[in-house]
Simulated scan of single mutants.
Amino acid sequence: MANANIGLQVIPSVSEEYVYGVVDQVIQLIQDSGVKYEVGPLETTMEGDLDELMDIVKEAQKVCIQSGAGSVISMVKIQYRPEGVSMDEKVEKHR
């Protein structure tokens, strides 16, 4: 399957002082997965096989709960084209 892009924002249900710690655990999960990714101020964007990326999204929910969240809301954006899509094609002219 061609590369897709997924933007993932997690909003864990924890006290405000613990939010970044839980989000950091999700970012570590993404980093450890080996997929190309970029952390932004409101979401992390990943690039790779759609099935692999969706598995990371599912696992991110578990990481939030295991990190102490009572629940988690996730915002997911997906861009997929049969010929593939890259993060670079969206932002390279702005860098």
Rank of each mutant, 00 (worst) to 15 (best):
M1T: 09
N3Q: 14
A4H: 01
I6H: 00
I6S: 00
Q9P: 09
Q9D: 09
V10H: 03
V10K: 01
V10G: 00
V10A: 02
P12R: 07
V14C: 08
V14M: 05
S15G: 14
E17H: 10
V19Q: 03
Y20D: 10
G21D: 15
G21E: 07
V22D: 00
V23Y: 00
V23R: 03
V23C: 06
D24E: 09
I27E: 02
I27P: 01
I27N: 00
Q28G: 08
Q28M: 11
L29R: 02
L29T: 08
I30V: 10
I30S: 00
Q31L: 15
Q31C: 12
Q31H: 13
Q31P: 08
Q31I: 11
D32L: 11
D32P: 05
S33H: 01
G34L: 03
G34S: 04
K36A: 10
K36S: 08
K36L: 12
E38V: 14
E38Y: 08
G40A: 11
G40Q: 03
P41V: 13
P41H: 05
E43F: 12
T44V: 11
T44H: 10
T44K: 00
T45C: 09
T45W: 07
M46Y: 07
M46K: 00
E47C: 11
E47D: 06
E47K: 06
G48I: 03
G48D: 04
D49P: 10
L50H: 05
D51R: 09
E52T: 13
L53G: 01
L53D: 00
D55P: 02
I56F: 04
V57W: 02
K58C: 08
E59G: 06
E59V: 05
A60N: 06
A60W: 04
Q61W: 12
Q61N: 09
K62A: 14
V63H: 01
C64K: 01
I65T: 02
Q66K: 12
S67K: 12
S67P: 02
S67W: 06
G68D: 05
G70P: 05
S71Q: 08
I73E: 05
S74H: 07
M75A: 13
M75N: 14
V76L: 08
V76Q: 00
Q79Y: 01
Y80R: 09
R81Q: 11
P82R: 13
P82I: 14
E83P: 02
G84A: 10
G84I: 12
V85M: 06
V85P: 03
S86R: 03
M87W: 05
M87F: 02
D88K: 08
D88T: 15
D88C: 09
E89M: 10
K90F: 08
K90A: 13
K90R: 15
K90I: 05
K90P: 03
K90M: 09
K90V: 13
E92S: 14
K93R: 13
H94L: 14
R95P: 07
R95V: 13
R95Q: 12
R95N: 14
R95E: 07
R95A: 15
